[in-house]
């Protein structure tokens, strides 16, 4: 369970958002939506303490991650898998090694066990055949999938997706959406998805957090969202749906 309490962040004089409070229960998939530059990724990086808030707390399984010292913070971070926007694959090593990377440093697994675990992770994302490839040979969709395989290899309790479908063609985007659903169902992972793709939201999310006007403008279930009369939220949804229809 992740509880975000009265979180405020600004860069210099520029306020990103203030007083953000919401809760993510285990097993849920929460989508954080909002216009570009509204601070969705920044919020994501606060959840696993890659960035430090000006005030407020992020409580993960009962522990305030920002109050921990660096060593405990890092241990807590390993409960998270993150799929970064640009996949953030290490380009000095190949696909297999990318996925195996956390295993080599944080587990005592033997080489066989590592191979087995890596191949299983890759099979979740249907990329066993790409194991030997260099990361530079991978397409955008494949990179995302390898990133996802790497994010789940340590069997995290939480997985965070930063714009998982941006820059992909609709078909590939759909594949990724299916993977996100599959992850949360088969691996029983709590997911946080950052996106501005309403199609994706409607497909994968249970709850929606809408960031607008430097605050958490709306928070609730997907069903409530459809019925909501929140003006900015409806405008955002309409704009997205128009895009989808097109």
């Amino acid at each position: 369970m992740i509880e975000i309490q009265t979180l405020t962040k600004s860069f210099g004089d520029l306020l990103v958002w203030e007083d953000v409070t919401f809760r993510i229960d285990d097993g849920e998939t929460v989508a954080i939506i909002g216009r570009s530059g509204c601070g969705k990724s920044v919020l994501l990086k606060h959840i696993n303490a890659l960035l430090k808030p000006d005030s407020g707390r992020v409580i993960i399984d009962g522990k305030d991650i920002h109050a921990l010292d660096y060593v405990d913070q890092r241990r807590l971070r390993q409960k998270f898998g993150i799929l970064f926007q640009g996949s953030a694959l290490f380009d000095s090593i190949n696909t297999f090694e990318n996925v195996a990377f956390p295993l080599r440093y944080f587990t005592d697994k033997s080489e066989e066990e590592i191979t087995e675990t890596v191949m299983r992770s890759l099979s979740y994302v249907n990329l066993e055949e790409a194991a030997g490839k260099e990361t530079s040979e991978l397409s955008g969709g494949m990179r995302k999938r390898v990133g996802l395989a790497r994010a789940i290899v340590l069997q995290p309790s939480y997985i965070m997706y930063d714009e998982p479908t941006s820059g992909l063609d609709p078909q590939t985007a759909d594949e990724i959406n299916e993977l996100i659903i599959g992850m949360s169902e088969t691996l029983d992972i709590t997911s946080i998805v950052i996106t501005h793709d309403m199609h994706s939201v409607l497909e994968v999310a249970d709850k929606v957090a809408f960031l607008d006007q430097q605050k958490l403008s709306w928070f609730g279930t997907v069903e409530d969202m459809r019925k909501s009369d929140h003006r900015e939220l409806q405008a955002f949804i309409t704009a997205s749906e128009y895009q989808i229809k097109l």
């Binding site: 990086k45 890659l50 660096y70 890092r74 971070r77 993150i82 290490f90 380009d91 956390p102």
Partner: peptide, 16 residues
């Protein structure tokens, strides 16, 4: 590594 979020990726995996 910084601009392609590889450093963030390392940190998020629990690396120093």
């Amino acid at each position: 590594m910084r601009v392609s979020e590889q450093i963030d990726a390392l940190e998020s995996m629990g690396f120093n």
